[in-house]
Write a protein that binds this DNA or RNA. Structure first.
Lengths: 331, 331
DNA sequence: ATGAAAGCGCTAACAT
DNA sequence: ATGTTAGCGCTTTCAT
């Protein structure tokens, strides 16, 4: 049985309340007593019980994080940034690993809620809008990475239009005009990205061409097949993310289409994969660190009820140019 | 303020104890009452308070997981398997994201401990052996992925010798005899892998050649440079993991060395990257699902104190052959 | 500066 | 089958 405050108090010859004060670094404790108590605690290997503490104090220093897909390294990155920001802000994190199933997300969140979280960060959630809204009525929520402004729910996200503009301007600068998009599927984040693409293509007076894919290498392969069926073949492709992009590149190269000689390819996320010498994928770098900071800061506001209206923060992305994009053939 | 059991009880016109019984699906409750209570709970949006519950029941259904490096997709995979196994076993998970710093690991574990975990899964921990041992005296621990038998600490891991044998036999079968190893650095898991390589090379009567690297693409690049400095160039390379392997391949190809024509390359982890068409890396597939199951099962035993002596479970790996390995030139 | 006592939301005997 | 009661380990008034 783990030692309790009581054990420490007895050993130090003081009251439980005093131990409590010492453990919380309260100001009005004499240096002598403080030392005695700390030593007793140390000798006993005492650790405060966080459950009992939050039960008594009714103060919760824990945020929940719902991760949509743990096997996607990009989320690891975003999670890392949230974790760093949370630590700076003095919050613990409770993590629930999603599995790409909307229903499962809802049940994971329920578990999180039972563990008394003060707020919730949702990384690219897939749950239905109605669930999201109900949820945000229960606990302060900030979504990272979905652009759709779900009414009443805060979000921190890339500015998809600005990001798409980065891509299209880069490609247009290389002489491309026939720029296709391989999507990330029918999910909200994928649709947002597609909408950005369409908006920017329209802006540039170019004809959009959209091929269905997924946020996975397999989805990219599917998208690659879709591209190959296009006539004429586009000279450039904006893929939904890096995994999609490498799937596309795999198919193109296998069919003897040179990248970037015949077709330029751009991904999203600037993940480790994109940076591999072997891959060299030009990619939109998500402002991952900024995501974590913004989400945690916002959550802290919401918890303190100084938040005001829900809002979506759009954080600009940047383009990392590598060897998968080049001038259009014959330009 | 969130509704409590008391609120539900009042609304349903029953006692708090009955609500408690209903919430825990206890057997001896009349269907009528059960319905009444559930409806009241639902109307109030009641969620049990997990802190209060575990405080009162003294039963903790939560395991902690220390992840050594969140940005490494392989850990995402392993974590996923632990999460699945934990769910099947009815445990919640509390996750602490490591940052490759041994000191930080210790403090993360302390936080985890304060949150009343019943047991701890450590994914390739870097903390010192002494810390590990002290820790395992405090709470049941199972390490995943480090082979070194830290006295008194349970582990679930690949059989590194068997894994290396898989690699060397495959390569020898292709006519290779000059097989080098690019290491994962000076950490425990890296050393274990290296030891497996050395053991198997000795077994096969082959001369080991070891080049320092890291478990990252950059480390692989460094290893690739190291290889290029070797004379003669080995005809095959066993890299410490997939990231290392792609780093190596990048350097080799950049220097005009054909893979697998001139040099065959093998990685470890069979990660998403290895499976990319663009990469096609032959790789040792870690028995990731088995890791999660074994670790959680073992932890449950330890918690129930039916564990007995600490032991290391070695789970066999398998080799996934792709296009980065081929017959030795001229064979 | 320190202690006494009440109570956080829940479970777990024990009654009935 | 349901209610009563006594804590779980901690924080928090309120005294002293």
């Amino acid at each position: 049985m783990r030692p309790t405050q009581e054990d420490v108090a007895r050993r130090a010859g003081v009251s439980r309340a005093l131990v409590s004060l010492v453990m919380r670094d309260a100001p009005n404790v004499s240096p002598t007593r403080r030392r005695t108590v700390l030593r007793a605690a140390d000798e006993l290997g005492y650790r405060p019980n966080a459950s009992a503490r939050s039960l008594a104090s009714k103060e919760v220093r824990t945020f929940g994080v719902l991760i949509h897909d743990v096997t996607n390294p990009y989320f690891g990155l975003v999670y890392g940034s949230v974790a760093a920001a949370a630590e700076r802000a003095g919050y613990d994190l409770l993590v629930a690993p999603g599995t790409r199933s909307p229903e499962r997300e809802v049940s994971l969140v329920r578990t999180l809620l039972e563990h008394q979280i003060a707020g919730l960060v949702l990384l690219s959630p897939m749950m239905r809008t109605a669930d999201l809204q109900r949820l945000s009525g229960t606990v302060p929520c900030v979504i990272i990475g979905s652009d759709t402004s779900v009414a009443g729910v805060d979000a921190v996200t890339t500015d998809e239009v600005q990001a798409a503009r980065l891509v299209v301007e880069h490609l247009v600068g290389l002489g491309h005009r026939d720029i296709a998009h391989v999507t990330g599927g029918p999910t909200r984040p994928a649709r947002d990205r597609e909408a950005g693409y369409r908006a920017v293509m329209a802006e540039a007076g170019l004809e959009p061409r959209v091929v269905p894919g997924e946020f996975t290498p397999e989805g990219g392969r599917e998208g690659g097949e879709g591209l190959m069926a296009l006539d004429p073949l586009p000279t450039a492709v904006m893929a939904a993310n890096d995994l999609t992009a490498v799937g596309v590149m795999g198919v193109l190269r296998a069919r003897g289409v040179d990248v970037p000689g015949d077709v330029s390819v751009v991904g999203f996320d600037d993940s480790q994969i994109a940076a591999l010498d072997l891959v060299g994928l030009t990619s939109v770098r998500q402002p991952v660190d900024a995501f974590g900071d913004a989400a945690v800061a916002r959550l802290a506001e919401l918890v303190a009820e100084t938040g005001g209206e829900a809002r979506t923060q759009h954080i600009p992305a940047e383009l990392v140019i590598r060897s998968s994009t080049g001038p259009v053939r014959g330009a």
